[in-house]
Amino acid sequence: MNDVKLNETTGGVGLIRKTFQVLDMFDVETPAWSQADLVRKSGMNRSTLSRVVRYLHSSGYLMFNEQNSKYMLGIAAVELGRRASNSFDLRVISGSVVEQLALQEKETVILTSYQEGQGFVTCLDQVHASQGGLSVFEKLGAVFPLHAGASPKAILLALSPDQREDYYKQDLKSFTPATITDPDKLRAHIEEYAARGFAVSREETYPGVIGVAAPIVVNGRPLGSIALSVPIQRTTESKIERWSVLVRKAVQQIADQANGLHLQQEVPLK
């Protein structure tokens, strides 16, 4: 039962923005806040913040812990997150970007998905190369560990240093002689490409195949990756540099869409 209402008479859109500002402050690093800390951190005046917090509390989006006098996300927020997770479809959000990139480059573009805590990516979608001759394709639903191939390694780039170190401790399977299975070499390799924002695979999962990929990162978390996968015969170093720019632009477009940013016009991939 909501005894506090936010409507046109209490600030309109500006107050709605303040409401989401408060909700966004509750994260993994700081899951609980006192009202005084919320005032200091948000920069709102005390009366406005108090009204926002009262509304969120009465709506179930915040709960109050009497033991430490702090607020935490409530059941309504948890349920909203669950519904969003169940309805979120990375393939739908990414579809036009994947198709545009494949059409422009005439090479295979692969979309993978990643679930937090897993040690692999899953091939979610792909658009096959449209030019003649050799082409690369991957089986939908195929999985690859994070150390093998451009699409999986793109996820490693986006993980925290601690998460990477945990992964390096695993048994690193070899798929081809080019697969990097030595933890020290893999660490150095990932650190080099993490600074550049993209991953490159040279015959690490399939002989004769080069991959260039970047991670799709939303709210600081990798959701998957976009990769151009090309026969080695059609690959040059200058093309790899070009593709590295294109996949980074592609994942940024997808992240913007996932964040609900409505662009006035589509940004072309150049």
Rank of each mutant, 00 (worst) to 15 (best):
R54H: 15
A129P: 00
M72Y: 06
R51L: 12
V109L: 00
Q131F: 13
S96D: 07
G133L: 03
L49D: 00
L80N: 04
V143Q: 14
L124V: 06
E79S: 11
V127T: 06
Q67E: 13
L56S: 03
I110V: 15
A148Q: 04
G74L: 09
A129S: 14
M63I: 02
L140H: 00
G95I: 01
G119D: 09
G132D: 14
N65K: 11
V98P: 01
V98F: 08
T112K: 09
Q104F: 10
K70Y: 03
Y61R: 00
L56D: 07
S87F: 12
V98D: 03
G133H: 03
T122C: 10
R54C: 03
Y114H: 02
N86V: 12
G133M: 02
L62V: 05
R83Q: 15
L103C: 09
M63H: 08
G117R: 13
V97C: 02
V52M: 05
G60Y: 01
A150L: 00
Q126C: 05
E107C: 08
S94Q: 03
G74V: 05
V143F: 12
L56H: 01
V97Q: 01
A84E: 10
S85I: 15
L124A: 12
S135V: 12
A102P: 02
L140D: 04
P152E: 13
E66Y: 02
L80F: 05
G74H: 03
L156P: 01
E79Q: 10
K106V: 05
V121T: 03
A129V: 06
G119C: 10
T122E: 08
K106P: 08
K153W: 06
Y71A: 00
Y55F: 14
E116A: 14
R51Q: 04
L49T: 00
E116D: 09
A142V: 01
L62E: 04
G149N: 03
L73K: 04
S151Q: 12
S85Y: 15
Q67A: 07
D89S: 09
E138Y: 13
V92W: 02
V127W: 09
V97F: 09
P145V: 02
A77P: 10
E116C: 11
Q100Y: 04
T112C: 11
L80H: 06
E138R: 10
H128S: 06
S59W: 02
K153E: 02
M63S: 12
E138I: 04
Y55A: 14
L73E: 10
S50M: 04
Y114T: 02
H57T: 04
G117F: 11
Y114Q: 01
L103D: 08
E99L: 12
D89H: 07
L134A: 13
F88W: 09
S85G: 14
I93L: 05
G141T: 02
S151F: 02
S85A: 15
K153H: 07
Q118T: 13
S130E: 10
A77F: 11
G119N: 14
Q118N: 12
E99Q: 15
G95N: 10
A148C: 09
K153T: 09
L49Y: 03
S130H: 11
V136S: 03
S113W: 05
I110T: 12
S96Y: 08
L80R: 07
V97N: 01
L73C: 05
Q115R: 11
L146H: 09
I110N: 04
